[in-house]
Nucleic acid binder design. Structure first.
Lengths: 369, 369
DNA sequence: CGCGGGTTTCAAAACGTTTAGCCGGCATTT
DNA sequence: AAATGCCGGCTAAACGTTTTGAAACCCGCG
């Protein structure tokens, strides 16, 4: 039973290759390849023979060999500062879904916001011959060497959530100016006049944009810009905490925080100083997350379209890979002001965090919008 | 200036290959390869010639070709249910760091807890000829086809956070029995006697383990096991919300929730029903996250060593890849009970979420422990 | 001078695909 | 009956590495 005919049961754990299939079915390699990629016209009988052999040998095309031959890996590299930062999983997910939909895979790297690590990551991706790169650049400049690499190698890059004025490259970002503007206007409309800002690192383009939006809104609302009410953090919890202490000591009556993590820090500082939101100050935060639903007061936030950020970036990149080399594009995605309670407008939006249908997995529903 | 000598300045964007380097430096391909992999003994002068050529041509070894030739990709595949579930980024990060440290890369896939997607992911990874796979299996059985694939292909698998009694495979999990046991004992010690459980899907091994730990603790504390106080969710927010409603209607005075996301849901239900924690019931949650630091009362949680889960799994996998095929290993990592306020022991641990040093990036510090 | 032994270098064969170019039939056209 | 065109299939050359023998060279020793 076990050794009937010339049954070659791959005892050595070797996986079958295309030539094994060819031998097994008595056709040429070419024909097998044609069947696998179901090319136009292979005779019905031959095709069947080949298909049987494939099933029998458990053949699985070797994508490595394919990549080498076609000079295309169907892989796109993505570099983010840190996947543990809750902002990025959704962006990555968006990119991954969009990529997969078009037959691409994602190779993910973390730069930890470190320039050398970032450069190493790019180096790695280039060596792996990815077809394109999605880059959320670490804070700081483009080093000359990185610049050179991007210049010399002719694979497409798309910047995600970052722009560089002096580098004309495709980029997909959220409209941070607009988001910040709306946030601060809302603060003002709810009666706040001493409005403070906890900003991200101003070397990062989006932090700068949010700062600009902040300023513009102040002006628009005829409020003075008071430098002591602006403090720069680094987008991390700890810096929000310290910035919060510093800022609150100047008794603002409204605060706009430029990201989620720093808001967490600020809230800790708030409690420690015995202050209360929204009684003592109104608060608008950037970035919304499901778990904020349990915090009281419910936070008014400016939500960024994280998922789309990723998916549109991936789509643009793949378009570039496909050969479209039109002018560099700057895509700005609109944020959404979600008014809740932290500015004193106790607009109790019942079920706010429960708008999922029971059967709907959370990530999907977040992904949709 | 531009066309001096036989200066071939790669006008066509073609990247340099090893043979270009060989030609440029007048040696054989073999020698270049030797230099690149700095093999033992290449003549000093030749080595220098080659190195110059490499720099000049901006040569970068093609890892695809290398993989094909060596039949090793130095890549490990990792499949998780959903990177957007806040549990996983840290696990992935642990795996990625450990892998990179040994010269491996991570190729990440999301299964969305769907069996077909999971199978497709495995299929893809096998086609990409990854050297090994880290698998956090989707809820549900090993389908026969998946089983077969794992059996036939002889690349190593390591299960992460999952075990299957009938499948002797390496696995790295948290000691969920122990974690649940401690959680429930703590609840009991703080004077609760009608203790409820919001469980994960009991088809998932760790949910089962937590349930066992729950039960064991009850017994140990001489409390009766009351089926109406046990409700099964699916680890997502929405199910925690519904389970919360169901459970709270039976007025437990203590609740142990088997994961973070469901806790979020429960807390929403709690508020809606006008109940208070810890006054009306004590609460212990599984999984700890920095942002919980802003929630009041501070939550008592059982923290899982997420980062290690990933890193140890990767290390084990790489060891297997290296050829070690000893007996299957089941590694259990100990969780840590973090007592805060949600059981009524108002042990105000000042600065609990602020134990970072100011200069320490959050992800790093989380990663450490 | 011849020869073993150790470097240093090489040419060529893998690795598993894709694909350009070719060729033998068969049917259709002149 | 010969020329034309197409279909179905094949051979062989890429793709960019690693690696296996083996060749060339140098050394000193008998």
């Amino acid at each position: 039973m076990s050794s009937s005919k010339h049954n070659k049961p791959k005892q050595t754990g070797k996986v079958a290759s295309i030539s094994d299939v060819a031998r097994e079915s008595g056709v040429s390699i070419f024909t097998v390849s044609a069947v696998v990629n179901n090319k136009s016209h292979v005779g019905k009988n031959l095709r069947e023979r080949v298909e049987n052999a494939i099933r029998k040998l458990n053949y699985r095309p070797n994508l490595i060999a394919r990549s080498l031959s076609k000079q295309k890996t169907q892989t796109i590299g993505m570099i983010v500062p840190d996947i543990v930062n809750p902002f990025f999983p959704m962006v990555v997910r968006g990119a991954e879904d969009a990529a997969r939909k078009q037959g691409y895979n994602l190779l993910l790297c973390n730069s930890d916001d470190s320039l050398p690590k970032e450069e190493a990551a790019v180096e790695l991706l280039l060596s792996k011959r990815v077809d394109g790169i999605l880059l959320t650049k670490a804070a700081g400049d483009f080093s000359p060497s990185l610049r050179q690499m991007i210049q010399e190698v002719n694979i497409p890059f798309v910047l995600v959530m970052r722009t560089y004025a002096d580098l004309t490259k495709d980029a997909v970002v959220s409209d941070d100016y607009q988001g910040a503007y709306e946030a601060v206007c809302h603060l003002a409309r709810s009666g706040r006049s001493r409005i403070g800002l906890i900003s991200g690192p101003l070397k990062i383009s989006n932090a700068k944009e949010r700062w600009r939006g902040f300023r513009a809104a102040l002006e628009e609302q005829n409020l003075p810009y008071q430098p002591e009410l602006v403090v720069e953090g680094d987008y991390r919890i700890e810096s929000g905490f310290r910035a919060g202490h510093a800022l609150l000591s100047h008794r603002p009556d409204g605060i706009y925080v430029a990201n989620h993590l720093m808001t967490i820090g600020l809230l800790q500082a708030t409690e420690e100083m015995g202050l209360r939101c929204p009684e003592d100050f109104g608060l608008v935060s950037f970035d919304d997350y499901p778990w904020l639903g349990v915090f009281r007061p419910r936070l008014t936030t400016v939500e960024l379209p994280k998922y789309q950020l990723g998916s549109e970036a991936a789509e643009l990149l793949i378009q570039r890979i496909g050969g479209d080399d039109g002018k560099p594009v700057l895509k700005k995605l609109l944020p959404e002001l979600r008014i809740r309670e932290s500015c004193g407008f106790a607009q109790f939006v019942s079920g706010d965090h429960r708008r999922l249908k029971p059967s709907e997995p959370i990530s999907d529903s977040l992904a949709k919008k």
